[in-house]
Design a protein around this nucleic acid. Structure first.
Lengths: 189, 189, 189, 189
DNA sequence: CATGAATGAGGGTTCATTCAT
DNA sequence: TATGAATGAACCCTCATTCAT
C-alpha cells in the first residue's frame, strides 16, 4: 500500500478512537509506521486530511452499496439493502463520519464537500426516478430533496443509534421502523 | 446575571465562532468579563461545559416551541410550527448544536445526554399519542422511534440546510417538503 | 528584578553566545529561571525581543558615556572618552550589537529603530555644535552626517576589532589611530 | 555554469531575500534546478556556504573596482571611484554582505575570512603608499589601519544608507560628505 | 468568592541531512 | 555523479490548570 494510503488508514483509525483535535500527528505516523516528517510529504497540514478521508469514506460507501445487485428488484428491496449497508458502515466508521459531518468540514470549501457527495445523491435520484416510472412510488415529490431526506435520515438514525444506544439488540427494530416510515411516505398507495 | 450564566453565554458565543477545541478558556473569561481563575470556581474542567451548554440549549428550544399554543389545533398545525421553530433555532445556534451532536459529546456519559433530551422526546411522544387518539395519524407506528425520527429529521435537515447551503431563498421549499414527507408517512389516509 | 528584565538579560546572554536564530526560547527561560509559557506573558514572539534589547543596549551606552563629566573639557577629550567607552561596551555586547545592526532589525519598523538611536545622534550633534562655536572644529561640515560618521566609525571599528582580531594587544593603537583620523579631519587647523 | 556555481548563485539570491537561517536548502536547490541530495556533493553543510559566498562577493568587488583604470590619476580621483563602486555593490548585495559581516561569520575560522579580505586590504595599502610617495597624502599615518578605516567607513556608510534610509535622493550628499571627511583627514595640507 | 500571573506538557510544523537507487 | 523520498530532532508557541494573594 502506498504511504499516502497508509497515512489515511492510520488517521481514520486514530481519529475514530480520539476525535480529530485530540489526534496527534505523532500518533498517526506511529500507527502508519513512518517518520514524523514523512507525513508532510503527503499532506500540507493536519486538517488537509479531512477532505481526503471524506473522499475515501464515500468510495467505500458507494462501492459497498452498488456491489449488491438490485437491478431487477423492487425499490423496497433496494431500500432495505441501503438501510442495512448504511448501518454496517456507520458502525465501523462512526467517529470519522461524525468528523466529516461536523464543524471541521466547514473549514473546507463546501464546494469540495458537495462535490464528494454529488455522485451519491445523483445515483439516489436516478433510482427514485426509475421507481417512479415503474409506478412504485408517487410522483408529486421533489426528487432532489427526497433523495437527500432518505440518505440523511438513514445515516443520521444509524449515527444516533451507534452514538447513543448501548442496547444494540433493538437494531432490527430501528431498521424496520425507518423502512416503514419511508415506505409509507413514498408508496403509491 | 450570575457569573455561572455569564460563563455559559460567553462559551456559547466563542464556541459558535471557533469550535470547541479551538476555544480557549482565556477567550471565554475575557468575553464573560471575569478572571481566569474564576472559571474554575464554576466548572471543574473545560469539557464540563458541554453538558451545561446542551442543557441550556434544550431549555431554549422547549420554551420556544411550547410558547406557541397549539392546544386546540390539529397535529399538522403543530408539526408546521415545530419545523418553523427548529429552523430558526438551528440557524441561531448551529455551531453549538453541532458540537453537542458531535464526537465530543461522546466523552461524556450518554446517560446525561439522554436525560437532557428525555423531556423533549417525551413531550413529542405524548403529542403523537394525542394525535392517534384523535384519529389524525395512524396507529401501527412505534411511538418512541417515530418521535425520534421526526425530531431528528427536522433538526438534521435544518442543520444541513444551514451548514451547506448558500441559496437561502429555497428555505421555504425545504420546510414544505419535510412537512409533506412526514405527513404522508403518518396520516391516517 | 522584574521578570521582564530577567528575560531580556537572559536573552542578551544567550544571543551573545549563540546568535539570534540559534537561540531557543527554552534556553532563554532556563537561564532566566522561569517557565516556558511565562516568556509569552511578556513578549508576543521571539523576534519582539529585538527592539527591547536594542533599547536596553542604547540606554546602557548613553548612560555610561554621559556619566563621565566632560563638560568643561575640550572636544578632543570628549572624543577620546567616547572611543574608550564604545570599545568597552562593544567588547561586552558585541554579539547583541551585531544582531541589532544586522538584517533582523530590518524585519522591524525602521522608524522604531531610528527612534531608539535618535537621542544618541542628537546628543552628538549638539556636542559638535558646541565645539564649532568654541572654534575647536571647522564649520563647513554637515553636522548631521558627521555625527553619524563619528559614531558609526567608532562603533564599527570596535566591532571589527573584537570580531576579527585575536591580537588584542593592539587595541591601544586602534583607538589612537581612529582618534587621530577623526581629529585630523575635523580640527580647525 | 557548473553546479557548484549554480548553487552559490541560488544561495545568494535566496539569502538576500530571506536571511541565512530562514533560507532552506530545499529552496536553494529548487532555485538552482538540482536535486536535494546534490547539494551535499558540493558543500558539506549549509553553513559551509558562507565562506564560498564571501569569496565570490569579494571577487566581484575587486574586479569592479580594478576595472576602472585610475593609474595615472590622483588618489582623490581613485577615492571618489571607490566610494561610487562600493555604494553600487552594496546596494545590489546588501543582505549577503550583512550576513558575511555578522555573527554567522564567527562560526567559521576568522583566518579564512581574513585571508579572503587580505588582497583587498593589501591593494588598498599599496595605493596609499603610492599616494604618500607622490606627496598627495601625509605620511604620519599607520598605513595598515588607515586602509581598513577607509574601506570599512565607506562600506559601513553604504550599508547603513541602504539599510535604514528611504530618502534615496540624498545619496549624493552622503558620498560627497564621506569623501570630504576622508580627504580632510589625509591630505597633505 | 475572586483574581491573574505563572506553569509546563504537548501540540503542529520545519528542515538539515542521509541513503538506496 | 545525481536523485529525491525519507528521516527525526528540535523548534516556537498555546492553553488548561493551579495557587498565592
Amino acid at each position: 500500500m502506498s504511504k499516502h494510503d497508509k497515512i489515511i488508514d492510520a488517521a481514520m483509525e486514530v481519529i475514530s478512537e480520539k476525535g480529530f483535535e485530540k489526534t496527534s500527528i505523532s500518533e498517526i505516523v506511529k500507527r502508519a509506521g513512518i517518520a514524523q516528517g514523512t507525513f508532510y510529504l503527503y499532506f500540507k497540514t493536519k486538517s488537509s486530511l479531512i477532505p481526503a478521508i471524506a473522499s475515501r469514506l464515500l468510495s467505500i460507501t458507494l462501492e459497498r452499496i452498488k456491489s449488491k445487485d438490485t437491478e431487477g428488484e423492487s425499490f423496497w428491496y433496494f431500500l432495505d439493502n441501503l438501510i442495512e449497508e448504511t448501518f454496517t458502515i456507520t458502525e465501523e466508521h462512526k467517529e470519522v463520519i461524525t468528523l466529516c459531518y461536523s464543524g471541521l468540514a466547514i473549514e473546507h470549501s463546501m464546494e469540495k464537500w458537495e462535490a464528494i457527495y454529488e455522485p451519491y445523491y445523483h445515483w439516489m435520484e436516478s433510482t427514485i426516478e426509475k421507481a417512479i416510472s415503474k409506478g412504485e412510488i408517487q410522483e408529486q415529490i421533489n426528487i432532489n430533496l427526497t433523495a437527500q431526506f432518505i440518505i440523511n435520515m438513514i445515516e443520521n438514525t444509524a449515527e444516533r443509534y451507534y452514538m447513543t444506544s448501548e442496547h444494540e439488540d433493538s437494531v432490527g427494530m430501528h431498521k424496520k421502523e425507518i423502512f416503514t416510515f419511508i415506505k409509507r411516505s413514498l408508496c403509491n398507495a
